[in-house]
Simulated assay, not measured.
Amino acid sequence: MAVTRAGSSAVTSDPQVLRYAAFSDDPAGGNPAGVVPDAAGLDDAAMLGIAARLGYSETAFLTPPPEGLGGAPGRSFTIRYFSPLTEVSFCGHATIASAVALAERIGPGDLVFATPAGVVPVAVGAADGVLRATLTSVEPAVREAASPDLDEALAALGWARADLDPELPPRIAFAGAHHLILAAATRERLADLDYDFDRLSALMRRLGLTTLHLVWRERGNSDGHVFHVRDPFPVGGVVEDPATGAAAAAFGAYVRELGLVATPATLTLHQGHDLGRPGLLTVELRAGDPRSHVSGTATAIPDDAV
């Protein structure tokens, strides 16, 4: 199968590959994702090859839904996610990108995705001509990180325990994929990210982690609901993910588990600024619902941006 970098938002002639920036209304912001709206007939090797040649942190591949998934006719899909190196169980930004790409073609409304991690509903609405998608995560879980694993993660990052915010203890959180959450004590510590790629990748593979979710909490006027975040993603062959919806969903579970905010609440996550690709993610925590609801926009990436 020939894969090129040409075409109007298509990277292959067969199948069609769309390119979207998720969690931004600017193609130069947010996190780029590939979306293959009809991946029927592609095997794992073909999907991995497309994802690797596209080079984004993830590409989503859509096929018909499994029997009994539910949802309105024509609005339910099976979705799989591939990084340049491997398949991942769940990817939030590629889900948001896929939902917006579909809504542009079949209209806003409710979608249902059967992901490797479970069923993920997505609602897409339009306001002032802008499409905004909200995914509902699978059931989350949060657990403590073992002290030796934490020490190894900090060593790979070049951080010390004194660099951590004592009010936000390290945890491993899951809402479709596993993420080690580490909170920096200062914005300067978060900004200065220069880690040992191979060492961190080895630890993450051993622990089954998709990213490290590094956060810094704004205080003062934000009432503790605003965070700046970064996500190293060496297991996917990517130094850093610019906007990470799966980690945002897991972080919502973390915030709820630790009682950092009272529900209902909406968290605002700023990501990608240190990479020059600013993105904005919101995480809604609803009373009586343990799942995270992650929202954002997405926009097509034009030819001349490739």
Rank of each mutant, 00 (worst) to 15 (best):
D289Q: 07
I172S: 06
F251I: 01
G158K: 15
L182W: 04
A117L: 03
L180D: 04
P108E: 05
T134P: 07
D26M: 08
L102N: 06
A156K: 01
R286T: 12
W216H: 14
V255M: 08
D26K: 13
D192E: 15
R53C: 05
G158T: 09
G237H: 11
R219C: 06
P37Y: 14
P66S: 06
P64K: 06
G55N: 10
V261L: 05
L85F: 07
D165Y: 08
F233G: 05
G55A: 15
A28C: 08
A2D: 11
L281I: 15
R187W: 07
G41T: 13
F197D: 08
T186V: 10
R171F: 00
R206C: 03
P66C: 05
P264I: 10
A145T: 14
N31G: 11
A202C: 09
A146T: 11
W159D: 14
Y81I: 08
L42W: 08
L42G: 01
E139P: 03
G208T: 14
A185M: 00
P148V: 10
A117M: 01
A6W: 12
S98E: 06
S8P: 12
L54F: 05
Y20P: 05
Y20I: 10
I50S: 04
A117G: 06
G49N: 05
A39R: 04
V122Y: 00
G237D: 07
V142M: 10
E218I: 04
D25S: 15
A183Q: 07
D151R: 04
F82S: 03
A28Q: 12
E144I: 09
G279L: 12
N31A: 14
R217G: 04
G118W: 10
F197K: 11
P242D: 11
A123F: 04
M47T: 02
F77Q: 05
L260T: 00
D303G: 13
R187E: 15
V17C: 11
Y56L: 13
P232S: 12
Y195Q: 02
M47W: 04
P278N: 07
G109E: 02
G224A: 10
R199H: 14
M1F: 12
I301K: 01
S295G: 10
L131P: 02
V283K: 03
D198N: 13
R105I: 03
L168T: 10
P65L: 08
V138I: 12
E67P: 08
D196G: 03
L180P: 03
V130F: 07
D231K: 00
L285W: 02
L258P: 07
L164I: 09
C91T: 04
P148L: 12
I106L: 15
P170R: 06
G41Y: 13
R143L: 14
V120E: 00
L62E: 01
F90Q: 03
H178T: 11
I50C: 07
V255H: 07
V3Y: 14
F227D: 00
L42K: 11
A33D: 02
L207T: 00
R256S: 08
D196C: 09
V238S: 00
L200N: 02
A99G: 06
S98D: 06
D43F: 14
L190F: 15
T266A: 13
S89P: 01
E284G: 07
L131K: 06
E104T: 12
F77N: 03
D38V: 12
H225Y: 09
